[in-house]
Amino acid sequence: MRTPRARHYLMCRPTYFDVVYSINPWMDPKKPVDTPLAITQWERLREVYLNLGHTVDTIEPVRGLPDMVFAANGATVVDGRALVARFRDAERIAEGPAYHDWLRDNGFPDLRTASVVNEGEGDYLLVGDLLLAGTGFRSDPRSHDEAQEFFGRPVVGLTLVDPDYYHLDTALTVLDEQTVAYYPGAFSPGSLAVLRRLFPDAVIASVQDAAVFGLNATSDGLNVVLPQNATALADQLRDRGFNPIGVDLSELLKAGGSVKCCTLELRAAG
Rank of each mutant, 00 (worst) to 15 (best):
T35G: 08
S22T: 10
Q208A: 13
R153F: 04
T15D: 11
H8D: 08
G128K: 05
L130D: 06
P227V: 05
N51H: 11
P14K: 08
L160G: 04
V224Y: 07
D176H: 06
P244Q: 09
F17P: 04
G241K: 11
S188Q: 03
L249M: 14
K254I: 03
E121T: 08
N106T: 14
V117Y: 14
L10C: 03
A255L: 15
V224T: 06
A230K: 07
L83G: 00
D67C: 08
R238W: 15
W42P: 00
G241C: 11
L103E: 02
E91Q: 14
Y99C: 01
G270V: 15
L253E: 09
A6W: 02
V207S: 11
D239S: 12
L111Y: 08
V259Y: 02
G241Y: 14
P244E: 11
P109W: 11
R63K: 10
F137N: 03
N106A: 12
D209T: 03
E91P: 05
N229F: 04
S206H: 06
L132A: 06
D248F: 10
E95A: 07
T40G: 09
A210C: 02
V117G: 12
L253D: 01
D164Q: 10
T173R: 08
A98V: 07
V224R: 02
Y124V: 14
G134N: 00
L195C: 01
D34T: 04
F87H: 13
K30E: 09
M11G: 00
Y166H: 04
I204Q: 00
A38F: 06
E251K: 10
G221S: 15
R81D: 00
P97N: 15
F87W: 11
V56Q: 11
P154L: 08
A71W: 00
A181N: 05
T263Q: 08
D105C: 07
A211Y: 14
A72R: 01
L111V: 12
R240M: 09
A181M: 07
F70Q: 08
G107F: 09
Y99P: 02
L65K: 01
L253A: 12
L126N: 01
Q148P: 05
T76H: 03
G53H: 06
C12Q: 06
D57H: 15
P189K: 02
A255I: 15
G246H: 14
S191H: 01
Y165F: 13
E119I: 13
D123S: 12
G152W: 05
G256P: 14
G185V: 11
P244D: 09
R86M: 14
V247L: 12
N243H: 11
T135E: 02
F108A: 03
L158W: 01
P227K: 02
R92Y: 13
G270R: 11
A114D: 03
P184A: 15
M1N: 07
D18Q: 08
H54V: 08
D140W: 12
E251C: 10
G246L: 09
L233I: 11
V84T: 10
R238N: 13
A202P: 07
S250T: 13
I23H: 01
T35N: 15
E91A: 10
Q208V: 07
E119V: 13
A255H: 09
V33T: 03
N243C: 14
A193F: 04
L198K: 06
V194A: 07
L131W: 00
L111S: 12
L195Q: 00
